[in-house]
Design a protein around this nucleic acid. Structure first.
Lengths: 186, 186
DNA sequence: ACATTAACTGAACAGACGTTCAGAGCAAGA
DNA sequence: TCTTGCTCTGAACGTCTGTTCAGTTAATGT
């Protein structure tokens, strides 16, 4: 595998486990199987390495969501969104973890960029909730709050879910969709 | 104010803003209004400073919950728990933030201790859900998952809530209790 | 008035940090 | 065969890290 890719993989894994600030470029180099200096052929510095990981993650997430056809019916659209979110996040727990934990280690400009990508993603969910409320098929006291609540609810899964655990991914998905549905049931 | 207390306050504030690993003892000293060496009159080292903050936070949280009289009726008990959780966490956003974010920076033994304190707290919620399910007054597909979902839902509030924001604390509390109730409505 | 104690300063320690760079190694193109 | 262009190593840079400690300061108890 090419060094640039190994570098990113190593960084994602180490950042997720110990945090951006706690991981040194030397550790990343060791995990990549290369000397420190060589890393700088593939990234300009540590900060932009983090930024690229987060920004690319948000791009990928958004692109993947765009591939999902959301039904016109708001409740069905919410189900599609919920299942997509759970599935996508379950497949890359490390990247997700970093994307939510390491925002504060970005420089202000980099933070603003990633933050706006995150808001664009949440806007998709908000739109579904808004339509569900307007159509009277959902009970949503406050669209913004419901959106944040659902995101927090769903994303929390990544902190404890293990494929070898008590419940399979499909079971978790079903139970979480059930809870999400109830949250906004008319 | 006594130095030991100023030290803890400074550490909580700085750890919440930048993360444990990103904050140096010199920064903490500056914020405390003292030279670096003086910190070591009040803590043995950086790691136990973090551990004490987290462990004491969990102790305080548990002690505060113990003061709340939880009604016998599971739904009323859930409401009491929900409102308590939201209120307690809204009052100390920094400490809460650290307690959830800096767990991975604890040594294994310290982590296990804090983790068990956290589980003890969650066990209170689980017990309420179990009783609600057994009594048929709640719909709970999986007690453990519902517990984790509710905790994630409620704790997520601290990441965005600002007293000067669009909604007052009481309004947020009401809306979140409404969503929590719906989540487990029979 | 003196002794004791605790808290603080300021400097020092060894090691780790992010980053740079001269030179080695090697593959591709002329 | 020689040159060009990457990618790598290995060492070095200045700075910052957590922690220690001799010595100053000030308050307390006798």
């Amino acid at each position: 595998m090419e060094t640039g890719q190994r570098l990113r993989r190593a960084a994602v894994s180490l950042f997720a486990r110990h945090g951006y600030a706690a991981v040194s470029m030397r550790q990343i180099a060791a995990e990549t199987g290369v000397q420190v200096g060589a890393l700088y052929n593939h990234t300009t510095d540590k900060q932009s390495l983090l930024f690229d990981l987060l920004s690319d993650h948000m791009d990928d997430l958004m692109a993947a969501l765009d591939q999902v056809v959301l039904p016109a019916d708001p409740v069905l659209a919410l189900e599609a969104f919920t299942r997509f979110h759970l599935r996508y996040h379950a497949e890359r727990p490390d990247a997700v973890f970093i994307a939510y934990m390491e925002l504060r280690n970005l420089t202000p400009e980099n933070f603003m960029q990633v933050e706006s990508q995150r808001r664009a993603y949440e806007a998709r969910l908000e739109e579904i909730l808004r339509r569900g409320k307007a159509g009277g098929v959902m009970h949503v006291a406050d669209v913004k709050l419901a959106c944040l609540a659902i995101i927090a609810l769903l994303t929390g899964v990544t902190t404890w879910f293990r494929p070898a655990g008590r419940l399979s991914q499909a079971e978790v998905e079903d139970i979480y969709w059930d809870m999400t549905r109830r949250l906004v049931d008319a």
